Simulated assay, not measured.
Amino acid sequence: MNATFANDIFRQSIQDYHLTDYVDTPIQNPYSSNGIAFLLYQKNWIDTVQWHLEDIIRSPTIRPDELVAIKRRIDQSNQDRTDTVELIDSWFSDLFLDIMPKPEARMNSETPAWLLDRMSILQLKLYHFREQVERPAVSDEHRQKAQQKLSVLLEQESDLTRCFDELIEDIQNGDRYMKVYRQMKMYNDPTLNPVLYSSQE
């Protein structure tokens, strides 16, 4: 498991989504459900659909009822994203279960799965800035600005690739260790969100 493997799956998911470019297209995950590839594909598909929901919600002609429905869908998507990240971290926790960190090992504040979360979003940015660079009927200035941003994103891709691979290597060598704190989101929990629980009291 390395960054190249993950990025290839993220790019595959993005390409598959854009075959229809439709937020209600059912996911057809090509990987076995008991492997990390399945979770990586699922993670990026969630990100890709949400990316386009975020575009739709900013339409100046969207009806108020549509806006509310999509906002709630985005909230659920954020929960699904977090849940999937935690499943990926569980996979890594199992992978590193028998590794004993060295006494001087440092804890890494960002887990492998949350780094993969950033890498997944970055692949979406790369895809869509390449679209802008290749977009017909735009000014040279627009294309040049898009190319400048694309160049920065490509540098970031290289940096995150190295950071991920170094993190995995360091954990495997016992030089660093991961510690998973499960997300404690409150807004979707009817027992923790005061707007929700006060309406039931």
Results as ranks from 00 to 15, higher is better:
30 P>T: 08
160 L>K: 09
43 K>D: 13
170 D>E: 15
118 R>I: 01
20 T>K: 02
10 F>K: 06
200 Q>S: 13
152 V>I: 11
71 K>V: 02
139 S>N: 08
67 L>K: 15
44 N>Y: 07
105 A>W: 05
24 D>H: 07
4 T>L: 08
175 D>T: 04
112 P>N: 14
49 V>Y: 07
133 V>D: 05
150 L>E: 05
182 R>I: 13
118 R>E: 11
201 E>A: 07
193 N>E: 11
172 Q>F: 06
12 Q>F: 03
95 L>W: 09
26 P>G: 03
133 V>K: 01
15 Q>V: 11
93 S>D: 12
146 A>S: 13
148 Q>F: 09
114 W>V: 10
74 I>T: 02
99 I>L: 09
185 K>C: 04
115 L>A: 00
120 S>D: 10
98 D>L: 14
111 T>S: 15
42 Q>A: 04
40 L>T: 04
197 Y>D: 07
150 L>A: 01
109 S>W: 01
135 R>F: 09
140 D>K: 15
90 S>M: 01
91 W>S: 09
153 L>G: 01
95 L>Q: 15
155 E>Y: 10
161 T>F: 09
27 I>D: 00
77 S>D: 10
130 R>M: 12
147 Q>Y: 09
16 D>I: 08
160 L>C: 05
15 Q>Y: 14
185 K>I: 09
130 R>H: 09
96 F>S: 02
157 E>G: 03
84 T>S: 07
1 M>Y: 06
2 N>L: 01
109 S>N: 10
93 S>P: 00
174 G>Y: 06
153 L>P: 00
6 A>P: 08
26 P>S: 00
49 V>R: 11
82 T>K: 12
37 A>I: 00
153 L>V: 02
127 Y>P: 05
27 I>V: 09
124 L>P: 03
103 P>W: 15
121 I>E: 14
10 F>A: 13
139 S>M: 10
130 R>I: 06
173 N>E: 15
138 V>S: 11
82 T>Q: 15
73 R>G: 03
121 I>W: 05
121 I>S: 14
93 S>W: 14
140 D>Y: 10
103 P>G: 12
161 T>E: 14
140 D>R: 14
162 R>Q: 12
156 Q>P: 00
51 W>S: 04
38 F>E: 02
